[in-house]
Design a protein around this nucleic acid. Structure first.
Lengths: 233, 233
DNA sequence: TGACTTAGTCAATAGCGTTCACTAACTTGT
DNA sequence: ACAAGTTAGTGAACGCTATTGACTAAGTCA
């Protein structure tokens, strides 16, 4: 369960792997690394095998399908996001911290995030995050059903926005031509049909997506603060 | 460019297809239908061919890759979202309407939405939407760079949240076991470790995601209203 | 009519996830 | 210590996928 960068076994060719060589954690770690290096569609059993110096089909002794590996990757990202988190004194700061942690983790592993952020892991790390969020909402004064609604608003928002940004970054990394459409294509053939686009065409080019994220988080949190039962910020 | 439900050509076997039989629109329409019926990974060239009564490879005369088809599907969803839209008197109502339109379109075609909502089409329909949003922001008093930032906040938010909900719905439709984790798995082995989860375990089960979305849209729009240069609601 | 263009077809290819029978390393009971 | 049993890793095979290039025939135009 440690998942620190253990020295990967050299992909020695031909030799049969030792018996305890593979493990769920080792496979998950390799999967994240492969997604980082090879992008969105880079995660294949063949590559996993090569990376771990094992047969491609060896993974099936630890996972029963590719999707199960992805779920484990999702849980690993959740773990990386929550590890080291300590609640702040203000529940607003806690939620802001958690939101930024998700963003940063997804930014570090865009391809892994893109493939997994919409999956529910049901694992212990997910529970840790859910509990941390609910704790902050409890501090804000929400209880029961109301707390659950706020929880879903917050978590759907954080996962969706961070995750879909990761998906766009990962898409860009593939160089799949879809990427830089923003820069190139916003010159409509008939500008007079799209007056407002034409008016800000230049500004549309440069975007700092994290700044946009910060603005969205601020918007959500200030709306939550305005509705929170406990007035004590 | 009409894309109404034209009577699909009967998948006549063996016969060669007439010359003008295929078109980009017919293929896109078939693709959406296939995604609706067969779910997330259901869109294949083989199925497209069968659906249209054509050879699987015939698509390559109209699109140069699978991804190009998906981009066209994305543009079709944008078209369905924006078609029939008329700006409201209040810019807030306009933005709310556009947000709900995206949600409803994505809900009608969850698999298609899940595969395409993070793609930028660069097509005319996308421009129509961008212009509509910028028009509302203009009415609110934003100009230039500030308008662009608000635009990105709004559009990122709407696409991400509606889209990732569609992805979850589509995932559920596959019956891939990940789906109903919410209902089943939120019984931690050691409840004392997750006190807040345990406290609301029952309430976590039932979620009306549209209600959550409405709450999020309200939060964003009220935050925007508070910052809008033009005070005239 | 004959040359040309092009939409649809057919066969082939490389890569994918997954399955299954097999093998060899380790564990356990005596 | 040795036999029996379990199981992690292997290698060959299968069916499905997107994509390609050569072929064919329908249509256009001089």
């Amino acid at each position: 369960m440690t998942m620190t960068n253990e020295a990967e076994p050299a992909p020695s060719k031909g030799r049969r792997l030792q018996r305890g060589a593979l493990s769920r954690d080792a496979i998950v770690s390799a999967a994240v690394q492969i997604l980082d290096e090879h992008g969105l569609n880079g995660l294949t059993f063949a590559r996993l095998g090569k990376q771990l110096g094992a047969s491609p089909t060896a993974m099936y002794r630890h996972f029963s399908s590719r999707e199960e590996i992805l779920i484990a990757v999702a849980d690993e990202l959740v773990r990386q996001s929550i590890d080291g988190y300590v609640p702040a004194v203000s529940w607003l700061d806690s939620l802001r911290d958690l939101a930024y942690r998700a963003w940063r983790t997804f930014e570090r592993h865009p391809a892994a995030a893109a493939q997994t952020y919409h999956l529910l892991t049901g694992g212990p790390n997910e529970l840790r995050v859910v509990d941390a969020i609910l704790a902050a909402l409890h501090q804000a004064g929400w209880r029961g059903e109301a707390a659950v609604k706020q929880y879903h608003m917050y978590s759907q928002f954080v996962l969706a926005v961070s995750g879909s940004h990761a998906a766009q970054v990962a898409q860009d990394d593939t160089g799949s031509s879809v990427a830089s459409t923003w820069v190139q294509e916003y010159r409509p053939a008939r500008p007079e049909d799209y007056p407002y686009v034409s008016a800000v065409r230049e500004e549309l080019r440069s975007i700092d997506f994290f700044e946009v994220y910060v603005g969205l988080v601020d918007a959500l949190l200030s709306a939550m603060a305005a509705q929170a039962p406990a007035a004590k910020e």
